[in-house]
Amino acid sequence: MSMPVQEQDIEQTVREVLAAHGRLPVSADQISASDDLYRAGLTSHASVGLMLALEDAFDIEFPDRMLTRSVFESVSSIAAAVSELLAA
C-alpha cells in the first residue's frame, strides 16, 4: 500500500521536526508511525517546542481543539492533523 506523495512528504517532515525538537531518548527513525510518543519519552515541555516547530515548518497554526495530547501522540496523528490544516 502506498501513500499519496504529499502525505509521505508530510510524515517525513514531521519526523525531521520530531528528531530536532522532540528530545526523545531514542532516535526518531526507530519510531514507527503509530508508536506512542509520550511512552517513548516525549515530555510535556518538549511537546511545546515540537508544536511550535511544526507550526513553523508547515506555516500553519494548530487551533486550540488540536492542541491536545491525543493529536501529538504519534507521528501519524500529527501528520493527519497537519494534512487537515494544509487542506483547509
Binding site: 510535556s44 515541555h45 511545546v48 508544536m51 511550535l52 507550526e55 497554526e61 494548530f62 487551533p63 486550540d64 492542541l67
Partner: peptide, 12 residues
C-alpha cells in the same frame, strides 16, 4: 512554569 510553555502555543 507549565503555563509559560502553554502560553507560547495556545491560541484563545
Amino acid at each position: 512554569e507549565t503555563n509559560a510553555g502553554l502560553l507560547l502555543v495556545a491560541k484563545e
